[in-house]
């Protein structure tokens, strides 16, 4: 059974869409991620125009993070000072990303750049996860564990005290990280938690307890801003597609939450890394294979 998507202007098999949403939600729930960086490339692979895939993914990212923020708000696990600094950077970053997306769409190069960015993100994250898993195993064996090390970041000017996290670091560090993640959100639709969290832990030196809540607040607010920018600048959010994704991915995430305890966390991480490599392989194959059609027309 097919359903017409009014903004994407194509019809899509409803069972494929629901399966995709449940699959994305299941993976997100199982691996504790927002899932945006899987949603966006998969939507493109099933034929959704790239700009619409990016815009609509932002809705799914917002939906999957907003309730998480509320629960961390109740648990008081959020460092508002750092979060708001990152959000300020994120606002400018999102605007840059959305404008970049608009330019790439207008000059017809959106496929090339999005493909390249997704491949780098997916493979980069996969390598990071596999490396971290191997490192933690090694550290536990050697009984040496130093999470936060001083780096060039701590030499930056305009230092500020972040009381909750007990940090004295340059405001430029969270601002820049916020800007980078915001740009990724605007350009690719992803929330960027899988980059943000390691940055907050390893670069800013935040404590793990407040990292999740603070990163969720940053992602939710930046996704919210991105939603408005996408709609006003690119008009690329498909309402029907978004609703299907929100419902089906919630179901998938719920199924995952019921069975997650049956899996070993370390094995899950490795499995996740492998999954990312598989998705990246499809995108890389797309760059190598002789295209079925050499010419393609896209109405502006």
């Amino acid at each position: 059974m097919n359903f017409y998507l009014p903004i994407a202007e194509i019809s899509i098999n409803i069972y494929l869409l629901i399966s995709l949403g449940i699959g994305i939600g299941f993976i997100s729930g199982l691996f504790g991620i927002g899932g945006g960086f899987i949603t966006s490339p998969l939507l493109i692979l099933v034929g959704i125009p790239p700009a619409v895939a990016v815009g609509t993914t932002t809705v799914q990212v917002f939906a999957s993070t907003s309730t998480g923020v509320m629960s961390h708000f109740q648990k008081k696990n959020i460092d508002y000072q750092i979060s708001f600094t990152m959000i300020v950077g994120g606002i400018f970053g999102t605007l840059t990303g959305v404008l970049l997306l608009s330019s790439l769409k207008n000059i017809g190069l959106i496929d090339n750049y999005l493909n390249a960015i997704y491949i780098i993100l997916l493979l980069g994250t996969a390598m990071f996860i596999l490396y971290e898993t191997a490192k933690i195993n090694l550290i536990y064996k050697n009984k040496k564990f130093k999470l936060h090390q001083h780096s060039w970041i701590h030499g930056l000017p305009i230092k500020i005290k972040y009381r909750k996290s007990k940090l004295y670091i340059s405001i430029l560090a969270p601002l820049s990280i916020g800007y980078l993640i915001g740009m990724l959100t605007g350009l690719t639709g992803i929330g960027g938690g899988f980059i943000l969290i390691p940055c907050m832990i390893y670069i800013l030196g935040m404590k793990t307890i407040s990292v999740i809540g603070s990163s969720l607040l940053n992602i939710t607010v930046v996704a919210l801003i991105s939603l408005f920018l996408q709609i006003y600048i690119n008009q690329n959010i498909d309402f029907v597609l978004a609703i299907f994704l929100i419902i089906s991915s919630s179901i998938g995430a719920a199924i995952a939450s019921r069975i997650i305890d049956k899996f070993d966390q370390e094995n899950l991480k490795v499995l996740f890394g492998v999954l990312l490599v598989i998705i990246a392989s499809f995108l890389i194959y797309d760059l190598f294979r002789t295209p079925l059609e050499l010419f393609r027309i896209n109405y502006v």
Partner: peptide
């Protein structure tokens, strides 16, 4: 939906935001 998107973009996003939060809470 297309009219809503082009003529009342704010409302279009607002409905999606409310639905996202409501459905996430319900689920």
């Amino acid at each position: 939906l297309e009219n809503l998107l082009t003529e009342q973009s704010f409302f279009y996003v607002f409905i999606l935001i409310v639905f996202s939060i409501a459905f996430s809470l319900i689920s």
